[in-house]
Design a protein around this nucleic acid. Structure first.
Lengths: 197, 197
DNA sequence: CGCCGCATGTAAGCGGTTACATGATTTT
DNA sequence: AAAATCATGTAACCGCTTACATGCGGCG
């Protein structure tokens, strides 16, 4: 399981399940979503495997927390996961499957609308990432290359998000144009056919 | 389920499970993997839902085939899936999670090696896509903008793969360089510290 | 004779999502 | 008084992967 490894990575410092969820929402959200209902049982399992240890701790506000701490065995497993090399090629890209079948709508204008919608979504996500970047850059003068390692590598993932979304946006632009040409060409042909009848 | 929709899209023309697997391997492989053990039960379920119909047909070589054909209801469901707009943001990117925690290896040279390996993998996939593109371009003079719609949209997905992998490759390049600078800077500091002792 | 390609399936298990259940504290 | 936030969990279900089971026909 991959979530196991991500939790081990996040537990560089001790934390409880709820805090881990927040960490997901703040830093990893753009390429990894996690649910509390998945986090809790996974933490439990990791403890059973001896990769984590937990202790209860009273909280000022709300019920007591169950705080997990990574064991040395847990560290070793994390290290091994990364050392095994990059996990690539398992991606399933839903919107690309949709694009693949776009002709089956039988309506180029509907296909066009799909691409326009995709570009809008991409633009939103791109704007969100850019906002994070400018915020970070303005709050820390060491951004990006004088950050300490623990922040530098997350910064690299942000940069990857930015570059990928920019590439998707460029693709949307050019694809939309090409579909527009297609529509124009087709209507010319139709007129020619009508004139010929 | 998403595989359901992809199978519906692939069944523009009737086919059996084994052929569908081949279609996956030929055209969708780069953004969607599918297993026979998943395809067969899914086809069965789609038939139970009235989105497909099947008939047995003897084969020259090997056992008889079970050929599925899409019903009008199946067409409607496919259409609806695409019309609901692009499915984005559900992606879990394993290697980015690994990059995120790369500092925890506690060894910049190991992190560097990871990025080099990622770049190598990216390069391989990029080369594979480029080979497909040049093959297609040389075998069909209509490539890319005079292809018929049923080929044009798949061509768009190929182009997306190319652009994304190129972006990842650029990111790898610049990230590797930045890590190298980091290593160099660090060793300078170490020398300074030694001199100071 | 064994292996490969064609062809169809089942069973077990895993990882993840959705929905449900509970309850304290803080904010509106 | 109601809603939001903090906090932990369970149960049911779903989709997918891995492994297993079966069998035909052609090739070396």
């Amino acid at each position: 399981m991959a979530l196991e490894h991500v939790l081990l990575g996040l537990l560089r410092k001790p934390a409880n399940g709820y805090q881990l969820k927040d960490k997901f929402n703040h830093s990893l959200r753009h390429f990894w979503a996690a649910d509390l209902a998945q986090i809790y049982p996974t933490l439990k399992r990791l403890e059973q495997q001896g990769l984590l240890k937990s202790r209860r701790q009273a909280s000022d506000k709300g019920p007591p927390r169950k705080i997990y701490r990574r064991t040395r065995k847990g560290e070793r497993v994390l290290n091994q996961w990364i050392s095994e090399g990059p996990e690539t090629g398992r991606d399933r890209i839903g919107y690309l499957a949709q694009v693949f079948f776009l002709d089956q709508l039988g309506d180029l204008r509907a296909a066009h609308a799909f691409l326009v919608a995709l570009r809008a979504q991409t633009g939103e996500r791109l704007a969100a990432l850019r906002a994070i970047e400018t915020g970070w850059a303005s709050s820390d003068p060491r951004y990006p290359d004088r950050l300490q390692d623990a922040d530098f590598f997350p910064q690299l993932t942000l940069r990857m998000g930015l570059m990928k979304l920019a590439a998707i946006d460029r693709w949307c632009q050019e694809s939309i144009e090409r579909v527009e040409h297609r529509i124009a060409r087709r209507s010319v042909k139709e007129h020619a056919a009508e004139a010929g009848e």
